[in-house]
Design a protein around this nucleic acid. Sequence first.
DNA 1: CCATAAAAGCGAATTATTTGCGTTAAGTGC
DNA 2: GCACTTAACGCAAATAATTCGCTTTTATGG
Lengths: 185, 185
Amino acid sequence: MTIHKGIRTGGRSARVQQSVHAAVKKLLESHDRADVTVPMIAQSAGVTPSTIYRRWGDIATLLADVALERFEPDEHLPDTGGFRGDVLAYAELYLDEMSSDLGRSMLRDVVATDDNNCALRCAELITKRLVVLAERAVARGETPPSTAFLIDGIFAPMVYRILFSETAPDNAYIRTLVDRCLPAD
Amino acid sequence: MTIHKGIRTGGRSARVQQSVHAAVKKLLESHDRADVTVPMIAQSAGVTPSTIYRRWGDIATLLADVALERFEPDEHLPDTGGFRGDVLAYAELYLDEMSSDLGRSMLRDVVATDDNNCALRCAELITKRLVVLAERAVARGETPPSTAFLIDGIFAPMVYRILFSETAPDNAYIRTLVDRCLPAD
DNA sequence: CCATAAAAGCGAATTATTTGCGTTAAGTGC
DNA sequence: GCACTTAACGCAAATAATTCGCTTTTATGG
């Protein structure tokens, strides 16, 4: 008996996911995050609310899902010719994305989601990019520290302050964090 | 004109707050956090749901409020005779409180709350205790680093991992963080 | 005590969420 | 291609949560 029977996927998942995600993005441009409701999204996406509830469970999970997709694209990782410069540039980019009102509320949605899958994916987003930067550095003959060390030293404090402080951190603060982990030559 | 007119408090606020807080605590012992609803709390507290909605706005804010109260008591800050030991002991205490299922969901509630007052209060909780430890250290003739530095180096990474990782950090990890900020003599 | 203001109660109206059931769209194997 | 299987969806009814207008209670100041 061959095991790999190939799973039946069924359904119409792709199209619905696209239109719902698009609806969320559009609504978030014109409405405050707290004012966006599931029925509102459903109507804008041309689906019924029950579809959304069945698929995502609650609005926090849906918003987190959209947020993650938005950050995935990973267009252009900076390339400054050195590991320290790359990390600093990426950290500033990340700060820029996450310290806006929209970015902050996305982070909150990601954290608030029941199953912490979203949070995991969010954290991996940083890890994966740091790995890319580190591989580049190794190829150049540098010996970068571990990604865990950089997350502890740079990204964790940044995210902490975005989530818990009144005012978002600025680039000067980021530079201080980077200096601690990666002393300039 | 004397300024201090004494504000009108009106209502029955104190009693209601107490019974609602108590109801939340009791319910969280027997129910999963996601299963606790506002009407449920209201009934258990002997008030109407609308009272809770008017006073706290939503369930996240209420749960965050209760969570913060729970952590305030600040019974016994460790006193090990040295700043490094004190910080390590407090960090381990904090980890113990926050890495449980209940602690984690409290952190999430605090972060998810709309007005970030709760998050501010939560962060100040750490700051205030570190200040106490630092004052003690100064009185002993030590010269401790700033609280901001310790938060960046120890508490931010700890909270980051509690919120974003699959598995909570352990004491060994905390010790590593402390070692980085406060090298042993 | 009386006036006042803040907070809470009550219940109806509104909205959001869950659920059951029939239907439809995709993938699978022949 | 064609039948078959299954996950995903729409619809609508049922349930639950949230908001709203109005009344009542309580603490405080005069």
